[in-house]
Computed example of a mutant assay.
Amino acid sequence: PPLAGVIRSVALFITLLGTWFIVQTYFDQSWKDISLRSWLGEAPVCKQLPRHKCGNRKSCPENYFAFRIISGAANVVGPSICFNDMVIMSNVKNNIGRGLNIALVNGESDINKLDTFLQEIQRGTIVLTASYDDAATKMNDKVRAHFVELGSSHVSKLGFRDNWVFLGAKGLKNKSPFEEHIKNDMKTNKYDGWPELLEMEGCAPRKMD
């Protein structure tokens, strides 16, 4: 009968109206906004994290240099030195070697040449150092004394295959706060015969004294 058809149509309309009301009531407005942007073809807004110099976790004040020093890993992966967002030494640059890797800012080796090299560093020069494989055998007492003058607290204890990263300066009056050292110990070594690599980052003042 025609009346039954009308009733079914009205019931269907009421059902659709009730469904629409539930959606409007229970779905969060933010979800609707996101869906609307998607329907309109708008890309979601992504916040890009700021990049700091040398890939460090924090930025440095205006009168400081950002640096990152990574020691070698065993005798397989070489060290890297970044200073003020410039990679000075790395495997990619192919300018590293086993033993001591030293970079001077402002401004190999047998031990005698290393002694002369360190002795001739000008006052105020920042020195960045990373070990690779074994650095201790590249040193004698004179070489170690030069690093002590540069502000090192650990160089005198550096032993066979120890890992060491250091930033100091010629003419430094106090000990440098930028130094890390890990002993070669068969009980704690990460690699077979070598300790874990060291990674140090920070902000060095433009004038270290």
Rank of each mutant, 00 (worst) to 15 (best):
S109F: 10
S109P: 07
I121L: 08
Q119W: 04
Q119D: 13
A130F: 03
N101P: 04
M139E: 10
G107K: 09
G107P: 03
E108Q: 09
S131L: 08
I126F: 08
E120C: 04
G107S: 13
L118M: 15
G107A: 10
L118T: 05
M139K: 06
I126P: 06
K138Y: 11
A103P: 04
A103C: 03
D115T: 12
I121Q: 08
F117A: 02
K113E: 13
L100W: 11
S131D: 01
G99K: 05
A136T: 01
Q119V: 06
N106S: 15
R123S: 15
L128Y: 09
K113G: 09
T125C: 09
Q122L: 10
T137Q: 11
G99W: 04
S131P: 05
N106F: 13
I126V: 14
D110A: 03
T116F: 05
Q119P: 00
N101K: 04
A103L: 03
N106M: 10
A136P: 07
M139Y: 03
L128T: 05
G99P: 05
Q119L: 05
L104S: 03
S131E: 00
L128K: 07
R98K: 13
N101G: 03
N106D: 14
I121S: 07
S131H: 04
M139N: 09
D115C: 02
G107I: 01
I121N: 05
R98E: 00
T129W: 07
M139A: 12
I111V: 15
L100C: 04
